[in-house]
């Protein structure tokens, strides 16, 4: 256990030093929270390097500090309040690294079950009125709304899987209660597994269907949008576990009435150009090359892992004002 706690204490000490009172500027900390993964060789806590070797790289930052938040996303549930469960590890990390009283501000990049763990933490916190300071959340391939695959196989899987069923993930916390923190999702639509049409919700193909989604059914008459592990209802923060073709937004001035959780939207281009890119848009992401962004549907034509790759790339290529 000492091995697990030590990294947290060291990071805490280091971050406090970095945020000494003499420093005028806020320290920018970037927290990467991983998803479901075999934790056999993982150490738990906060690390300045990717000890778990989960991520495809580290985000480029001009003045920030990157931290890898490692929880047991194999033998614990995302809402477990005892360490190394998701809620406990994230709570420790945020308290240590995102406290404005210590001169810290955080950017969160989460992937898959890591997003369920972070949202659960946030929804159950009193963020509005405590010193925790979070700029925004980049939710890549979020499993916060659960996965139908976990419904079928949770009994064969690991402890994490029982918390990733649709009913558990959606019932664990109030997904609307993001306390004013903006959560922007990377919803993936590329699913090249042979089981692509098996697990996720689908709907009849129409002229407005997302062309990047799988065509399923006997004559390809159904459209099914998922990234191979999670459907758009989860990755886009929809408040029903149904078939969706796109991401929507409840971030002002948007007010999606098709059912998106409050304070959830897509990463990142927005209303000024309605996602069509270029034209009169000013801040029109995505910023990195090769994201396979589908502007009309606010989705990315990438698989489950591709969401994490895109999030890292987007942080790296976004302007300093957005992602320092």
């Amino acid at each position: 256990m000492q091995k697990r706690v030590l990294p947290i204490l060291c990071i805490l000490a280091a971050s406090l030093l970095m945020a000494s009172p003499s420093a005028q500027a806020l320290t920018h900390n970037i927290l990467l929270i991983h998803g479901r993964s075999d934790s056999s060789n993982e150490q738990f806590g906060v690390f300045t390097f990717d000890q778990h070797q989960y991520w495809s790289g580290s985000p480029a930052t001009a003045d920030g500090h990157v931290f890898f938040v490692q929880w047991d996303a194999w033998n614990r549930t995302f809402d477990d309040t005892t360490c190394p469960g998701g809620e406990c590890i994230i709570n420790n990390a945020v308290n240590s690294l995102c406290n404005v009283n210590n001169g810290q501000e955080c950017w969160i990049i989460c992937h898959s079950a890591g997003c369920a763990a972070f949202e659960n933490y946030l929804a159950k916190s009193n963020y509005c009125c405590n010193p925790i300071f979070i700029a925004h959340v980049m939710a890549a391939s979020s499993a916060a709304g659960g996965s139908e695959i976990a419904n079928v196989f949770s009994w064969l899987g690991h402890t994490i899987d029982k918390s990733l069923t649709v009913s558990y993930a959606r019932g664990a916390y109030d997904h609307n209660n993001m306390q004013g923190v903006v959560v922007r999702g990377f919803g993936g639509t590329f699913n090249n597994t042979a089981t692509a049409c098996l697990f996720f919700p689908s709907q009849s193909v129409t002229s407005t269907s997302n062309p990047n989604c799988n065509r399923c059914g006997l004559f390809g008459g159904d459209s099914q949008c998922a990234d191979g592990a999670v459907a758009l209802h989860s990755t886009c923060g929809h408040n029903r576990a149904a078939s969706f073709q796109d991401c929507n937004s409840t971030l002002a001035p948007h007010n999606d009435t098709a059912g998106t959780y409050s304070f959830h939207g897509w990463w990142i281009t927005d209303q000024a150009c309605n996602g069509q890119g270029g034209n009169s848009c000013n801040w029109s992401g995505p910023y990195s090359p090769n994201t396979n962004w589908n502007p009309g549907f606010k989705t990315y034509n990438v698989d489950h892992g591709g969401g994490a790759v895109n999030a890292i790339a987007e942080y790296s290529f976004a302007p300093f004002a957005l992602c320092p």
Partner: peptide, 12 residues
């Protein structure tokens, strides 16, 4: 797919 990340397919 849901596990250890994550190398997206090459996209252009």
């Amino acid at each position: 797919a849901m596990g250890r990340t994550a190398h997206a397919q090459a996209v252009k």
